[in-house]
């Protein structure tokens, strides 16, 4: 596995790594890929299960109900003001 792939994956994963960490995780991912790669050689008789929405007769009704209060939603945000989450674009 190329280190470049790990860098792209870290962008996709919203993570950043130091140079040493990158080497370490590249090796780990490579080992894991090698470990699971056996499944490519096994023949599968099945297709991916196609979730048939038409046969689901118990979907939840769309009914508007009271949900979490604005106060509850905001209480875990690092900063909030006037009912909005406050977030500086840069710092």
């Amino acid at each position: 596995m190329k280190k470049h792939t790990t860098i792209l994956l870290s962008e996709l994963s919203g993570l950043e790594f130091s140079k040493d960490e990158l080497d370490e995780i590249t090796k780990k991912l490579e080992d894991m890929e090698t470990y699971v790669s056996d499944i490519c050689n096994i023949k599968s008789g099945n297709e991916i299960y196609d979730f048939d929405m038409a046969n689901i007769d118990e979907l939840r009704e769309d009914i508007v109900k009271d949900s979490l209060s604005q106060e509850d939603v905001l209480k875990n945000a690092a900063k909030s003001k006037n009912g909005y989450i406050q977030f500086a674009r840069r710092k």
């Binding site: 994963s13 993570l15 790594f17 991912l29 894991m32």
Partner: peptide, 19 residues
């Protein structure tokens, strides 16, 4: 995310996205 997650969590996220 990088400051909060442990290496184990980061590895699993990375491998999941790789797959």
């Amino acid at each position: 995310r990088s400051e909060a997650f442990s290496n184990e969590v980061k590895t699993r996220i990375m491998f999941g996205n790789h797959m």
